[in-house]
């Protein structure tokens, strides 16, 4: 297979807090190939967003500490990049869509102003960055996210748009200049189901059309199932299961994945499952061994003492001694 666009190797991220270091990420490995749609699934507080923020190096300065790990973008380590190179990656390589579209847009500037800025700083040539060309690109991007009347939208302030429209604008900004990889952090979570469905379909269509890679962060297995080719299940800063989407749903292996799947209320009815015992650990004093063991129904002594690594079962990887 070709070289991955992005490869995260053994990433650790700690936060400084009162009481010591909060060890959030504990050796994350992840890769995305060209044109691949990858899902990163887990509950709130699992470190999904921290992982993706470290890719763009937008973790809180001074608080976050990366003791170990590499984030390779086409083989170059993003963590070691100089500001100029990093800017290149941010403006041409990777873009990100956030959960809260209202917070991602500045309320005092028009949509147009904000989009033009994105285009201006994307390192276009002199020729390309002429005013009419920028506007043309912006209008084209808005058309691509199926918003009617782009000229009018450019002159709107964000508060004049609905939540779904704002998220479409955010998507338009992320694709307005060619990018290789799009990171979407729960883009539909704050929206209603029907709008969420529209945004997800739009996102999938665009990514496929442009041949981009996608990393979809979500807490919802259902969303990941409909949108991705391959899924990473994350728990407490560890990747616990990796599989092709169809494999994962046909044959989920890790006890955490199983617990999550059974907790989802089903349209077929049949009541609500018990849920998963306990809650996400305190990262200041994470449990030793497998971080899932205090919540795991199948935990044995070994799980408390030794950290399971991902083992490959024919393309389906899982980090559990019991499988």
């Amino acid at each position: 297979m070709s070289n991955p666009v992005l490869e995260i190797k053994n990433l650790h991220v700690w936060y400084r807090t009162y009481g010591g270091y909060s060890r959030v990420l504990d050796g994350v490995n992840l890769h995305v190939h060209k044109g691949e749609k990858v899902g990163l699934v887990g509950e709130a507080g699992c470190g999904k967003t921290t992982t993706m923020r470290s890719v763009l190096r937008i973790l809180p300065e001074g608080q976050a500490h990366i003791p170990e790990g590499q984030i390779l973008y086409h083989g170059n380590d993003i963590l070691k990049m100089k500001p100029r190179e990093l800017q290149q990656v941010r403006t041409r390589g990777i873009s990100m869509i956030f959960q809260e579209p209202a917070a991602a847009l500045n309320p005092v500037f028009t949509v147009g102003t904000q989009m033009f800025d994105v285009i201006k700083y994307s390192g276009l040539s002199k020729e390309e960055s002429r005013k009419d060309n920028i506007k043309r690109l912006a209008i084209q991007a808005i058309k691509e996210v199926y918003i009617p009347d782009p000229e009018r939208i450019l002159n709107c302030y964000p508060n004049q748009l609905s939540g779904g429209m704002k998220q479409r604008i955010c998507i338009a900004m992320a694709i307005v200049t060619p990018r290789e990889l799009l990171i979407a952090d729960e883009p539909g979570t704050s929206l209603d189901v029907t709008i969420q469905d529209q945004v997800h379909r739009l996102l999938r269509g665009l990514v496929e059309k442009k041949g981009m890679s996608l990393i979809m962060i979500t807490h919802s297995l259902g969303v990941a199932r409909e949108l991705t080719d391959r899924i990473y299940v994350m728990y407490a800063g560890n990747i616990v299961e990796v599989a092709r989407t169809s494999d994962l749903f046909a044959n989920p292996l890790h006890p955490y994945t199983l617990g999550l799947l059974s907790s989802v209320p089903k349209l077929t009815g049949g009541g609500v499952a018990e849920g998963i015992y306990g809650r996400i650990p305190d990262y200041l004093r994470p449990p030793g061994g497998c971080r899932f063991h205090p919540r795991c129904p199948r935990a044995v002594r070994r799980c408390r003492e030794e950290k399971p690594l991902l083992k490959d079962l024919g393309g389906h990887q899982v980090a559990c001694f019991q499988v």
Partner: peptide, 24 residues
């Protein structure tokens, strides 16, 4: 109903024939 993301084929079958959600 057709907009709900589901996790299994059985559920998929229960969804009404894809009514594409439009508008807000």
């Amino acid at each position: 109903l057709s907009s709900i993301p589901v996790v299994s084929e059985e559920e998929e079958a229960l969804k009404p024939e894809k009514v594409i959600s439009t508008g807000e």
